[in-house]
Amino acid sequence: MTRPLLELRNVSRAFGGLRVNAEVSFTLGEGERVALIGPNGAGKTTLVNVITGDLAPSEGRVVFDGQDITDLSIPARVKAGLVRTFQITRLFTGLTVAENVALAVMQRRGMTWRFFARATFTPGVREEWRRILELLGIADLAARPVTELAYGQQRLLDLAIGLALNPKVLILDEPAAGVPHDEAPKILEAIDRLPREIAVLMIEHDMDLVFKFARRVLVLANGRLIFEGDAGAVTRDEEVRRAYLGSYADGRRRA
């Protein structure tokens, strides 16, 4: 395996008496493409929130690039290179597409005291936001206000902001959720073109997407990691089948 970047050591998270994550351990190496899947209520979102710093773990440690980041704030984690995307809420709707990305580039570079320069034209910054938008196939939208973008385009812009923060690890939070069918392929293409050196952890329901994207799959069920291994082997695993079928049967009974 490549150099380990993100490492979870026996992470548990409880809400009151309810243990949502129990002793989860895994490692994500440089440039890896890993999918985290699991039935509804398996604790995927909680686990991601613990990784990004939105939630503190009840037990266990989160290590990033050799440094224990368990007690680090969200901005500090972002600065270190641990970036989460596909949260539409983070777009600045009063700004254009180019300005959104340029702002992230400037803040990352610490250009916080430039006032009268034109952000999107600043040499260095301009090349960077252009390169990112071209990589994701949305360069033609650069001058458009965010409010005019289609939903799928907003998600791509969010991915662009994530890239502008120069991540070492990128967490894609259900990239295709809610995106209309005709826009979904563009998102897949964009994910496919992400720079190789970035490690990507994708949380996803859509198994087609998972198989296209990931070589390694982690399966979470009832808060525990029940499978970790090759994407091809996951559907043959008995415990994974039980977890998914079980929840499916539960769902049927409830409905």
Binding site: V78, F92, A119
Partner: peptide
């Protein structure tokens, strides 16, 4: 200007602007 971009960003989404530093 850069100041204008930051101002509009802060007005739009103060929390996210803070998260970007």
């Amino acid at each position: 200007t850069d100041f204008g971009v930051r101002l509009r960003a802060a007005v739009d989404n103060g929390d996210m602007a803070e998260a970007l530093g």
